[in-house]
Structure formats: C-alpha cells, structure tokens
Design a protein around this nucleic acid. Structure first.
Lengths: 241, 241
DNA sequence: CGCGGCTTTGATCCTTGTCAACTACAGTGG
DNA sequence: CCACTGTAGTTGACAAGGATCAAAGCCGCG
C-alpha cells in the first residue's frame, strides 16, 4: 500500500479525504511501469490519452530553446501528476521527461474527468495541487530573476527536501542530477553549476558523492537560502496536530 | 454589457459556454469599484473573503524580497481573476496590487465555490484559466533565465499585446509602466530597463511616449522576441471561425 | 519658482558565460 | 589485464551582460 497510496498521501496535504475517496484513488493508481533516465514521457505538441503519476524517481518538465538548450521549468517528485494540463488544455506546450530511473502510473484522461466531475473532495485536492504548482513556479521565477545562483541552488535543494519529506520519500540523498541538469534547472551553464556547487560544499552546506547531494544540516541550508516553505502550502509540516 | 461580459469573454477562450452560464456570469460581475495606481488589493498573509476580477487597467502579483526589492511575478489584464487561489489555498503567499488606474469587481468566495461546484462548464473554464496562468509562468521562467533582457522585454510586450487582443482590449498603447516597474517584471534594474527600452526604440521595434509603449509592427516584434503564443492556449487567434 | 519623481547617460565592478584543457571513471573489446 | 573511448567533473582565462553608484536633464505640480 505505501506505493499505491502515494497520490492520496500527496493530496491529503490539501485537506482531509474520505475513505471512499482514498478507495477511489487506490483504484486509479494501478500497476506502475518503469522508465530509465532521460526518457521522454510526452513531447511538445502531443495530445496524449494518459496522464502520468510519479511513484518514484524524478521527472522534469522542460522546454527546448531555439538555440538547442534545454530549460527545466518544473520538477515532479513522487505523488505528483505530471500533466494534468492535458486533460483540460489538450495539446502540450512543452515536454516531460525523466531525470532518473522512475516508476510511473498511467491514468486515462477519462478517469481524470471522472475524478473532477464526480468527486468533489478529490477535485478540490487536484485544484489545490495545480495551485501549489503555480506557487512553486512563482517562487522559481523570483529565484531565477533575483537571487545569486548559489542562493538559488540552495533554495532548490531546500524545496526538494521539503517536498520529498511531505510524502515521506526523503530517504537517501536528494538531487541525483548531473551538473548539466542542475544548470538547466537554474538557468546557468554546467560549468558555473559546478563552481556554485563546490562553493556550497566548501561552506559545509552540502556534501557531494558522485552526482548525489546530501544535506547535513537542513536548517543551516534554509537560512543560507532564505528559504520560507510557505509557498508549498503544506499542512502541519512539522507535527501532526 | 461590454464591461460586465469581460469575464465571459475571457472564459470563452477556453471553450463554448451556454447562455445560462453567461447569464450566471453576468450576475457575478456586479458593479465595479475603482482604484488608483499602486494600491494593494491583498497583501501577503491575508485570507480575504473576496476574489477580484479585473475589468480595466493592469494589476500585478508581486513578492517583496528580503532586500526590500519587489519581484512582479504576474500581470493581470481585463478579464483576469486576480486571486482564485484564495478560494482554495486560503492564505496568500504573495501580494497583489494595481499598476494603473483600475476598475475591479469583488466576487465573494462563496460565489466562486458555487461556480466550481454547480457549473461544470464554468468550472472547466476556470480550471483552464488557472492552467494558462501556469503556462504563462513557465514561459516567464524561461524568459527570465535564458533570454537576454532585450529579447525578454520584447517577449513581454508581445504577450501583453496578444492577451489584450484576446479580450478586445488592445485599444491604445500597452504597458503604461514606469521603468522601475518594467525592471521589477523582468528582473533587471530600472537603469538597465531604460537602456534596453532605448535599444528596442532604436531598432524601431517600439515607440515610447512618456511611460507608454506602442508597437508599430507587432509581427516584427514577435520575430525579434522569438515569440510563439501557443502557450496562451487561445482559440482562433486570428479569425472567428 | 522650487520641489519630487521619472528618465537619461556615464563609469566602474561583479556575476556569469564561453572556450578550452585536463582529470576521473566506467564500459568495452582485445 | 590493459589500452581505448565516452561521459561527467574540475579548473583556468577571458569576455560580456547587467548591477550599482552617481549626476544631470525633464516635467508636472503646488
């Protein structure tokens, strides 16, 4: 059940769900399929029949730039639905691909429609999750435009840490990414990503083994990043009141 | 009716509405109130009872930075609802304020709930508008992180032009903004905003009178900005099929 | 007339991009 | 077991975009 419930776990951050809702979600979350790193789920222009739920691993939303570069505009972690858009907007205005090994669940568009039309609490939770995604984008926008890239990178680590914790998936090290991917997220070159990462390491804010980053002291990192997780709109981040 | 229908006009970009839906929206859009420039509608931390619809003028969503600066993370134009979040997320994680003289309509939170719960087509249209807002944010993120600021500024002008056109509000010049505000949107200093704007003027891409920008040739500007309006998900941008 | 806000322009500094070389390491085939 | 190859990480030198500081010009308004 820990796996199939990842969606319910995420959605309950929006507010309580009924047992009936959770049962419905358990139906929705069927057998996952596996994907290796750097595979596309959906590419720009598609109008697919399914929506993808991340069960494990890390997925990104990205746009390919005219100069051939890649801008990663969102990270999807376990419990996140990659492309709810599709069910409403139709065609995609960007692409979605894996970053790591992943397990995903395909949810038919029709099922999404059913959830939206006939399950008010789930509908509200999905709406909530869309709005949180939007809030995250706003924060990324601020991060991108205004902060120096070391603060920006630290902020990213804080966010991922907090989001993983919210679905109890903060097991091992976060950010199993190459420096190029890190650069694509932060809008900097891979060379600079390297320098910034070394800088954080030298300050003792992170430790790096291979392409994995660990955070020895999350509070210190949050302070450095001026991170305030309010925008994630999680309930009861610390305790279970 | 041209005024009160601005919401219907916007939402019909998502797909057709029934006459009954439109009648309901006409009820919702009551008497507007007026606001001068630089007034706050809602500030960070509020949990207000109303949601605001822009009838005329320009409103922005912004965050105040630790260093006292301001980052504008969204523009709301006629037909846009400023803060649908509030009805779902509760507390605000940012502030909303006017940029110009504005007319706005207050919509009670309860009314929004009714629209979401009992009017499927309107609900879908509202969901659509949220997703488009998200798409705009993604585009802004790319713009911010990857493009040089002259392209970025041109891109912004193209977007505003297209969004205003979509609700037939592209009357006079766009962007009645100070250079500081322009800088707050683009993530650059006001001094640099000035230089970039002069650059565009010298290239003949825009004309400036006071703090108003006019676009003599929108196609040329779009080309310069590498602007592709797909992400706005408007139906039938050119004609009325 | 004088004040305050906005725009314009110049000079200098800092952050980051780009180019390029070099290292470390894993996988492959001999 | 070892050379060969490809990918990612590391480091240095230099260039460029944009920030910052500062001062001067432009208006609109009391």
């Amino acid at each position: 059940m820990p796996d199939t419930n990842i969606l319910a776990q995420k959605l309950q951050n929006a507010g309580p769900l009924d047992p009936a809702d959770i049962a419905r979600l358990d139906e929705v979350v069927s057998e996952p399929y596996e994907l290796g790193p750097r595979e596309d789920l959906i590419t720009h222009g598609d109008d697919p029949e399914y929506v993808n739920l991340v069960v494990s691993g890390m997925v990104c939303r990205y746009k390919v730039l005219p100069d051939g570069g890649r801008a990663i505009v969102a990270l999807m972690l376990p419990g996140d639905i990659c492309d709810l858009h599709v069910a409403i907007l139709g065609r995609m205005d960007h692409s979605i691909g894996t970053l790591t090994d992943c397990r995903l669940v395909k949810i038919p568009r029709r099922t999404i429609e059913d959830l939206l039309d006939n399950h008010p609490r789930i509908r509200r939770a999905l709406f909530w999750s869309t709005l949180v995604d939007e809030a995250i984008l706003r924060e990324w926008l601020v991060n991108m435009g205004r902060r120096r890239s070391d603060h920006q990178m630290a902020h990213l680590f804080c966010e991922v840490h907090m989001r993983l914790s919210a679905v109890n998936e903060m097991h091992d090290a976060l950010m199993p990414l190459t420096q190029e991917e890190l650069g694509d997220i932060l809008g900097i070159s891979s060379v600079h990503a390297q320098r910034v990462l070394s800088g954080l390491r030298q300050k003792g804010l992170v430790t790096v083994q291979g392409s994995r980053v660990a955070v020895p002291d999350i509070d210190k990192l949050c302070e450095f990043a001026e991170f305030d997780g309010d925008y994630l709109h999680l309930r009861d981040t610390q305790d279970g009141t």
